[in-house]
Design a protein around this nucleic acid. Sequence first.
DNA 1: AATGAATGAGTATTCATTCAT
DNA 2: TATGAATGAATACTCATTCAT
Lengths: 189, 189, 189, 189
Amino acid sequence: MTSVPVRAPVRRPRRHEPERRERLLATTLDVVAEVGLAGASLRAIARAADVPLGSLTYHFGSQEKLLTAAFTRHVDAMVARFDERMRQAASPADALEQLAEHLVVDVGHPDRDLVVAVELYVAAARRPALRAVTEDWMSRSRRSLERHFDPVTARQLDALVEGLLLHNALSTEPLDQEQIRSALARLVL
Amino acid sequence: MTSVPVRAPVRRPRRHEPERRERLLATTLDVVAEVGLAGASLRAIARAADVPLGSLTYHFGSQEKLLTAAFTRHVDAMVARFDERMRQAASPADALEQLAEHLVVDVGHPDRDLVVAVELYVAAARRPALRAVTEDWMSRSRRSLERHFDPVTARQLDALVEGLLLHNALSTEPLDQEQIRSALARLVL
Amino acid sequence: MTSVPVRAPVRRPRRHEPERRERLLATTLDVVAEVGLAGASLRAIARAADVPLGSLTYHFGSQEKLLTAAFTRHVDAMVARFDERMRQAASPADALEQLAEHLVVDVGHPDRDLVVAVELYVAAARRPALRAVTEDWMSRSRRSLERHFDPVTARQLDALVEGLLLHNALSTEPLDQEQIRSALARLVL
Amino acid sequence: MTSVPVRAPVRRPRRHEPERRERLLATTLDVVAEVGLAGASLRAIARAADVPLGSLTYHFGSQEKLLTAAFTRHVDAMVARFDERMRQAASPADALEQLAEHLVVDVGHPDRDLVVAVELYVAAARRPALRAVTEDWMSRSRRSLERHFDPVTARQLDALVEGLLLHNALSTEPLDQEQIRSALARLVL
DNA sequence: AATGAATGAGTATTCATTCAT
DNA sequence: TATGAATGAATACTCATTCAT
């Protein structure tokens, strides 16, 4: 009588993966975008990345550190894109145009960057580690704006941009690029 | 002779409390304001209200229903205050002044109404039942604004207000009333 | 031939059990005696009591509180037995005899009371909550001894008793009652 | 006794270290003394020794083997010190004096040797590999005692010594050297 | 009408060990 | 020879909900 295993063990042939750490950060942002921070449990992230649970704490030590690392990565990318736009703008009017485009194009995937940003904002209110990330973000984007606007205007622009962002992330009737452009122009010019 | 209890129980039974349902809604908002939606477990709310755990599901059926009821109550109060301000405003300029005051005074307790509002906003993105509450809020406050402004302006004001709200809720350097007034005036006048 | 089900569904027909709390304390001591404190995980205790895991934290809040409650119960029982012996002893010599008997008979089940006591002793060195239990134990048994001996002698007796206890719990060649009696007599008389 | 750092400093590569094996054994005992056997995980030991985790299993194969080696080393040192004392004692009375001094001086650092000994004792009750170490210890120290006392007395002395050891390790009011000397003399002379 | 008891699924984290390099 | 990467099992604990009384 030959022994036949009734159930084959699940194959997980991924013992070696040098870029896993990076991949986990990207997956984390995907999961946050899809189900929100409240749903971004380590289990959910591990499942999405097809990785054993322990792999997450092995690479990041704790959930807090994983989220902080992922959000930091996200902010760095957003800030880089935004600063590039501001650097290339030739005039304040052009800067506004770039800003409007940024709001619609760069953060316009409503299932990804924009939602991630809002989740980050709100979570930051309670968690100091994340708060540091958002404050860094705010100060860096204000510095980008100050290439073209005085500090007071930059401040108000910032608030409006946050509002437009929230609105477009959460509202059922987001403002289109033309309406955004108009609101920005009214505020500044 | 009156009966003397041998030992007083730790928890004082609160047999007769006709207003408990209302009290639980208020406590729920307090807890959300204090620890966030993520921390507002039924257990946490029951503890804060000094009520047995079962009392919550007994009165509200489920957590979702409890939160929906509590947020609805909160929105009703906010909308009432806001509409009262808009109704009493004699001119658009006055309306803006009232709006600025609303932002600073009515929702100015950074540990309470404002935080609750932001928590509600973000949660609404994921939960249909809450989404209905925020959409109701948005449409009602836009209607209040349209007492004084055309629909397009009202829309942009709404976005700016949301931005100012977010900013003041989460930023380390919130805008003061004068700065808020100035931003609103720039946008509208 | 009777039909044998391949896999029977696990029966858990125990929704209501008024004395469960007490039963869990007893089971906890059994598990500590059997596998040591290090092995007395909540899972192990729940398995031994045939109870879902959550039942333990429901009744006791935390592992620390469960262990404290269980050890307190154990100590109370031990102290009661011991004090009863001391109370009935007519003379110091008789007290020694009772003491020897206590060591052999009362705590003589090497798989139960004695091992539990030693586990408690050592764990108390690291955990303040348990420490309070052992200190209570020590002071109460010394008070029992002082019914018949002066404080200095009682102190030394205490230490010897602890040593005999350790020895009999852990050694491969425990001392028998005659040897114990002899050691006690040498120390005191 | 080297202090065990709570958090490992920045990892510096320690390519060439011929004495690492020995150093790891010493660190293991330090960790056991500080946080107990229950807290002496391979990770904790590796952190304390500033060594990669794999280094431990590389040198010792398993946790069990590491602990056995470390305790064996500890017992050898203790036995050597004790036997030296017994060898130098000129009379039974002198032997008792040496014994009292041993209890206070040699194992008197309540955060180190003594605690390690007690942890070892209790762990030995459950783990055969450690049990062999304690039995070796017991038989060797009894042989040392039998240089001056008959076997029966040596046996009782052993038990008392264990009791005094436990007492001084765990009690809040340890016996001082004079009290110890008195207890030993009462038992023997 | 009201609640204490109970449960099973879910949470983050720690761990000893194995393995590829 | 030595170690960083990886894993799966285990840990204590929290939770929303159900149920019996």
